[in-house]
Every structure is written in C-alpha cells, then in structure tokens.
Design a protein around this nucleic acid. Structure first.
Length: 809
RNA sequence: GCCGCCGUGGCGAAAUUGGCAGACGCGCAGGACUUAGGAUCCUGUGCCGCAAGGCGUAUCGGUUCGACCCCGAUCGGCGGCACCA
C-alpha cells in the first residue's frame, strides 16, 4: 500500500464530504471530544501534540462508530509571551509570526488525519474572538467579579510583567525560571475566591483523575478555624485567624505581617525607626531569599500591646515576615508552646512560652502541636480537640470578639499583564469618572499593530499614543485606555464554549448551540494545567451560569491526562538536553496511521515514558499482515456445507472476545491493550486461514470485523482496506461491531486446580457444573489424588471459570 | 516537612481489582525458504536447574484457603504544595 497516497486520498475525501463536520441536525446522541488546543509555536508538531491528538482522535472515531454524533473541534491559543519575545529578538511582529505558525500547524494537523471539525476553528488572537474575551471581562465586571485593587503582586523581572499565583513555581516565574519579586501594584483581579467552596465541592461530581482533583483541593486549601479580635491600646482592632482556638490562652504575643495596614500605625515613637527598618528589610528579603525554607525567623517589636479577649491579658505586638500578608487576616496570635514557628520565634526573642495543652498519652514536650487537653485555660480546662474549639469559638461569638471562620489558600486571579500580545483590557481611565468599562457596542478594543514592545516594565500599549488616548464613555472627556492586556488564561477559559458557535458575531455563543453541545464529554490534555486552566475554566463556567448564560455547573465531565513522552534518555525533551525526537521522519517513513498506532501501543497512555522506536516496525508489519490477509480472503468463495466445529468455535470466540475487549479498552483510554487485542484477532484469523478446510463465511465475517475494529486506530489504512474489501461508503459510516454474547460462552473452561492453594494441574471443566460436581471432578484427577493420599477434603473453594482449590489435611 | 502517585522479565508493558503473574509486542535463540537476508514464515524464551523440582511482582512483616492487588514498617523514584497560622 502506498501509504502517503492513501493518506492524501482519504483526507481529500473526508474534506470534500465534510465528513469531519458536526451535524447539528442529527438525532444521534452528541459526544463532545475535546483536546486542549495548541499554542502556535514556531516549531512543527512535536511528539507531545501527536500523543495528545492521535490516540484521542481514535477515541473520537470510536465513539462515532458507536453511534454518537461526535464533535471534535480544534483551534489555537494564539496570544502569549513566546511570540512577543520572538518579536523582541527578531523584529518579526507577533501577529505575523503567529499567523504564519498557525498556517503551518493547520497543515500538519490536517496531515495527521484527525477528524477535527475545522469549520468551527477558533483563534484567540482574532478580533472576532477577543472581542468576546473582552465581553467576558465586562460581564464579570458588571457582576462584581472583576475588580481593581492595589496589592502585593508577583513580578517577573525578566518577562517584565505580573504573574498570577498559579504561574509562580517555587517562587520563580513558571515560564522563564527567574525568581519573582513582590511589588505593590494596582491591577485587575477576578474574584475566583467567591467560588472557592463550589470549586471544591464540584470536584466530587467529576470523572477526573483523583490526582488532579487532589491538586485542586490542595490549591483551594480550605481551612476551617476561628477569627479572634485583639484590641490595641490605640483602639485599633487586630483580627487573627487560627485553626487552634483551643490554644488561645497560650497566646504570649501577636504578630502582624510587615505589609499589614496597622504595621506603621502601631509603632511607638521609640520603635518607629526599628519598625521602618524592618518593613524595608522584609520587602527586600522577600526578593532575595524567599527560596530558603529553613530561613531563620526575624521580626521586630512595635512597642504596642493588644488584649487577648479570652483572658484579658495584654500581649506585645510584633511584626515578622513569617506571617503572610496575603493569607487570612495577615495577622496571627502566637502560641509558642503549641506551634513550631511561634516556638522558634519566641525562643529567639526570649518571649514567654506558656503551656495550655496537655498530651493525654504521655509527656508533653514543647512545642506540642497535636490535639490535647486544655490546661491553664480557666473554665475551659479539661476540654479537648474539636469540642474544645467549638466551645472557645462559641464563647468568642458571644463576646462579639470573633467566631468560626473558613479561609482559603486560593487567591483572587490577577489578570492584568504588562505585555503586548494579548487581549486589551476593555477599560478607560477617566480623570473624572475613574475606571469606566468600555460599552459593549464599542468592542472590540482593537490591539494596535504598530507598537514598540521592547520591555521596560511598562506595558507596551502605554507607549502607543494612538491607542491610549480616547474619550470617557461616561462623560465624554479626555481619558486614557487601560494599557494592560489580559492573561492568556482568560482566553482559554471559555474557548470550549465558543467552538459551539464559532462564527457568531452577535454574541460569544448562542444559548441553544451551547446547550446542544456542552458540557464537554471527554477532555484530554496535559496534567500541567491542573491548577491553572482547569480551575479558571471551571470558574468561568460557574460565573457564566450565575449570569444566566448557561445552565450547567461544570465544563468538563470527564478528564484524561495523557502522559509525557520523554526523550530517549529519560529526560523531558528539550533543545538544551539535545534529546528532541521529531515525529516527522517516522510519519514520512511509516505513515501517520502507523505512527499513531505505535504511540497507542507502545505506551500506557496516561503514563507516557521515554521515547524508543523499538517496535514501530512491528506496527508497520502488523498493518502489512492485515492487508495481506484481506487481499487473500476477500476473493475466497464460500462452499456448501461449511464446517462448524471446534476450530470455528475458537475463531468465533476470538472474534467476539476482541470486539468486547477492544470496545472496553478504547472506552477506558487503554489503547495499548486495545491494539494488543487487535493483534490477537489477526493472529487467530491468520491461523484459521491456514487451515485446509475452512468456513469462509465465518472467516470473512471475522476479517470484516477486524477492519471495523481497526478503523478508529488506523483511519486511512482502514478506509482503503474497507474499499478493497468492497465495503460501501466510508468505513466510519459503519456500525461498530457488537459482540455476540453466546459466542463467548464456551462448552468448557480450563480451571487451575489447587491442593492447599498450590497449583497441581489444569483441567477442562464443562460449564454449568455445580460446585459439588466440580469438587468431585477435581478429586478424581490423578495429580490431585497423588497429593491427597487419602486425606480428607476440609474445604473446597470454587471460583467459577477460574480455579478450584481443595484444602486437605 | 505535608499531600498524592509509582516500583512487575533483557526492554515497552498486561493482569476481569483478592483467584493460573508476565497477555500483546520488542529483543534474543533455534529452524524453514533462500546466492543472500537487516524480507517473510514457524518454534522456543521470567530466573535457577540436565531433570524432578525450586524461586519469583523493591525489602521485611501481617491478614487470608489464596496477595502484584488489602494492612503496617522500610528503601528507592516521580508529581504537587511548602512559614497557609
């Protein structure tokens, strides 16, 4: 078979017949298969793309043959830093390089032969798309879910932009690895924290990898505890958050984060200089050595005191950078006897350590951080654990000095970026009216082409006079545009909705179209998005639901992460490792079907592993053998009185077993075993074909099923073989074979026979025997008798269809 | 430090979730057809042993008639979080 010609032929036919288009009029049940869209980088498709898209396309084709109306769109996540950085280096405009890259990748994706519905293609950098990204921003703003505030933000000095929390990995920029610094800036945020609880509880309903759900739970970080209000001599109130309010009587000082609004206010004149110095030190320290986890604790006394509402005791107020400004209230009560960090700090600064919890099971070694019995706690003495905390928080509510409180680790999503290649934030800053959203009718706010994007810490758009100067939509006076662009994760938070109605120019999508297609039934992509894209997209869905644009709660019902194909040396493929393997040569030599099939067969799909091409030849050989068998069998004529004996039963069993297992394995994304079952079926059919006298009708039926089962995994080859076979229409218009349960019931089954749990032999046992009959049959076997030597059977365990175990003694 | 996952032949991997460990394939060995084979087709292939047999799912222990699977400890690898009060 001239595989390249066959690929071209069928890709042409699929194109011409609009075979890949979703049919909105079909009455078949829909199935939305979505692969995460790609970033149009300069390089060609790499093995990662192939590994994501190839096998998943086979899944989509499988669902289609099963009778689903499958929708499998494709598009490009086209805004983003690499194009801009490339422009800075080479002077090629991001729009030009991106459009060129998209064109190249479209060609390559088409050549893969996946059934992407290109009629609904989405490119996030197109005006027709980012217009609606901006519209999303405006809806969130209207709903109070987008707001601007000054806050300490993560700044990447290399990328010259702020980053969301999710984009900071070990205090470094996720993209370039540069340590991030903290800056106080006024930026736009999305109030994702408002959905923290639902984002958490919704996970329980999802068919997602447990690991990913665990990561999201972790990231959201729900923590239940108690807020306690400490009143200062100045009248200021310090609220602290604690999960251990049962230790409240052990508070010997209170600590504020250096960035806490009261930090300076509470400094007494004598301490002012030291406090200023410390605040300055903390700001610098956070830039220098945030990486050190064993960093020694530092702090400074403010000179002020606050009153513990539980016992009226006055305790000193400190500043220390082991308290984070961004979590809880930015202030904690310090209980050095029962907290490691407070213990270290108190020891260093010679602060008192007061034991208020007793170990119920032995000696209480400080710091003792487990649950225990309250002591030195007035009327609360003797209480323990959850009950103790309940009583203390109730008491605080009664005093109006605090009470139960839930906190989250999740922060609001910072969406402003000081970069050029993104969707402009649709806001105008008016000296009179303040921040004013651009009216929807004026969208899109167009990204200007002529812009100087050399990074200097300011948004490139800020330097574009033509863009910046505008009039206030409210008062008509002179005003300036927001110079920032939106985080590209905003674009990718709703693309799966746009696919449903990609050409709509009146709305981001039509409600009916979305209702018809969503939620996504099967979503496949890399695990690296667990806490970014996948969390943001869920947030968008819930927010849009609450604004009345949708009525489902979760965008992605089922999620699969493909594994990572590593370089042959076991490291992640990268230019710097010099271990990048390109799919192109393999595709050229063996064809796209063989390459895809090898990816499916050679790896456990969700595991991935180091690349090796051992075995790719075996796949080519397998496809060859299939072809040979078909060519040989197709013209064979059925004779009269065709035999139907043991050989035929065996073949029919193999055929139906394959049908059953391939379907099961495809559904489970267990592609390697599905392909193994196809190989077994081929082996069985070939073996049967070699017989002298055969049942041609049965053989032909088996070979036909083999083509159909193979079709999703090797689409071009299967179409061609189907045509050679004499099949009508596309092979994908055929029904997926359904197994005949009767053929899977054998007359007898091989049992493992055990005596005292040790296998002594195997025996064919007729189906339908009772356990007693099986026991008798086992006892009669010579191997068994040799081991029993007249001893009695104390117990007999029969596992139907598997084994019989005689316990003797 | 905390959370999660993983550890199976020479190699990639399977195992209906407590029931014959190693399916399928690579590799290797032997054979057939061949002037030739790096094509194709048979046969064999977990380890030790000539064999009978014994040993085998990181290690040690436990539960069970029976454990790759469940429980406890240890070692090794990977991923996430990391002063979150």
């Amino acid at each position: 078979m001239d595989i390249k010609a066959v690929e071209r032929k069928w890709q042409g036919i699929w194109e011409k017949t609009k075979f890949n288009h979703f049919d909105p009029k079909s009455d078949k049940p829909k199935h939305y298969v979505l692969e995460m869209f790609s970033y149009p980088s300069g390089a060609k498709l790499h093995i990662g793309h192939w590994y994501n898209y190839g096998p998943t396309d086979s899944y989509a084709r499988f669902k289609r043959m099963q009778g689903y109306n499958v929708f499998q769109p494709m598009g490009f996540d086209a805004f983003g830093l690499p194009a801009e950085n490339y422009a800075i280096k080479t002077g090629v405009h991001p729009k030009d390089s991106t459009e060129k890259n998209i064109e190249t990748m479209e060609g390559q994706l088409r050549a893969m032969g996946a059934m992407f519905d290109w009629s609904q293609e989405v490119k996030t950098c197109d005006e027709s798309y980012y217009k609606w990204t901006q519209w999303m921003f405006l809806q969130l703003y209207k709903k109070g879910l987008a707001y601007r505030k000054e806050a300490p933000v993560n700044w990447c000095p290399s990328c010259q932009t702020v980053l969301a929390n999710e984009q900071v990995v070990e205090n470094c920029c996720e993209r370039c690895g540069t340590p991030v610094v903290r800056k106080n800036l006024t930026q736009w945020f999305f109030k994702i924290t408002e959905y923290a609880d639902e984002l958490l509880s919704g996970l329980d309903t999802l068919d997602w990898p447990e690991k990913t759900k665990a990561m999201q739970r972790n990231w959201i970080g729900r923590s239940t505890g108690c807020e306690i209000e400490f009143e200062c001599e100045t009248g200021d109130k310090i609220r602290v958050f604690t999960t251990r309010c049962d230790t409240a009587f052990g508070v010997t000082y209170v600590v504020l984060a250096p960035e806490h609004p009261l930090a300076r206010k509470l400094a007494t004149p004598e301490q002012m200089a030291a406090v200023e110095e410390y605040i300055d030190y903390a700001a610098r320290a956070s830039e220098i050595d945030r990486l050190s986890t064993t960093r020694e604790k530092t702090g400074v006394f403010t000179g002020s005191y606050a009153v513990n509402p539980m016992n009226g005791k006055k305790v000193p107020i400190y500043l220390a950078d082991y308290v984070l400004a961004t979590y809880g209230t930015g202030a904690v009560m310090a209980v050095p006897a029962h907290d490691e960090r407070d213990f270290a700090f108190a020891t260093k600064y010679s602060l008192p350590i007061l034991k208020v919890i007793e170990n119920p099971n032995g000696e209480t070694v400080l710091p003792y951080t487990e649950d225990g019995i309250m002591v030195n706690s007035l009327s609360f003495d003797g209480l323990m654990g959850e009950e103790a905390r309940e009583m203390v928080s109730k008491h605080l509510s009664k005093l109006s000095k605090g009470g139960k409180k839930v906190n989250y680790r999740l922060r609001d999503w910072l969406v402003s970026r000081q970069r050029y290649w993104g969707a402009p934030i649709p806001v105008v800053h008016c000296p009179v009216c303040g921040a004013v959203p651009v009216p929807e009718k004026d969208l899109p706010v167009r990204l200007p082409y002529e812009v100087e994007f050399k990074p200097d810490g300011k948004s490139p758009l800020a330097k574009c006079e033509k863009f910046m100067h505008t009039t206030c939509p409210k008062c008509g006076g002179e005003a300036m545009r927001d110079p920032d662009t939106l985080d590209t994760f905003v674009c990718s938070s709703w693309y799966y909705l746009r696919y449903a109605d990609a050409h709509n120019d009146r709305a981001p999508f039509d409600r009916d179209a979305v209702d018809r297609l969503l939620p996504v039934d099967t979503y496949v992509g890399g695990a690296e998005h667990a806490c970014m894209h996948l969390l943001y997209a869920r947030f968008f869905t819930k927010a849009l639901r609450d604004m009345g644009y949708l009525d489902f709660d979760e965008p992605f019902k089922r999620l699969i992460h493909q594994g990572v194909i590593l370089g042959p040396d076991g490291n992640r493929m990268s230019k710097s490792h010099g271990n990048v393997v390109s799919p192109d040569d393999y595709v050229e030599q063996y064809g796209s079907d063989a390459f895809r099939l090898y990816l499916m067969f050679g790896f456990s799909y969700t595991e991935g592993g180091p690349w090796s091409d051992d075995g790719i030849k075996a796949i080519a050989k397998f496809l060859d053998r299939v072809e040979k068998l078909i060519l040989k069998v197709k013209d064979e004529q059925a004779g009269e009185n065709e035999p139907y004996g043991a050989d035929e039963k065996a073949l029919n069993y193999a055929r139906n077993f394959a049908i059953q297992r391939v379907a099961r394995d495809m559904e489970a994304f267990s592609f390697n075993t599905a392909v193994a079952r196809l190989m077994e079926l081929l082996n069985a059919a070939s073996k049967y074909d070699a017989l002298e006298r055969k049942n041609v009708t049965l053989l032909k039926a088996t070979v036909k099923d083999l083509i159909l089962l193979l079709a999703p995994c090797a689409p071009h080859t299967a179409e061609e073989l189907w045509e050679i076979w004499g099949g009508k229409q596309s092979v994908f218009a055929q029904d997926y074979p359904k197994e005949d349960a009767a053929a899977l019931v054998l007359d007898e089954t091989e049992y493992a026979v055990q005596v005292n749990s040790k296998i002594v032999c195997r025996a064919m046992i007729a189906n339908g025997m009772t356990n007693e009959e099986i026991e008798e049959r086992a006892k009669s076997l010579p191997e068994v008798q040799a081991r029993m030597q007249g001893k009695a059977v104390k117990k007999c365990i029969v596992v139907p269809g598997r084994l019989v175990n005689l316990i003797v003694g």
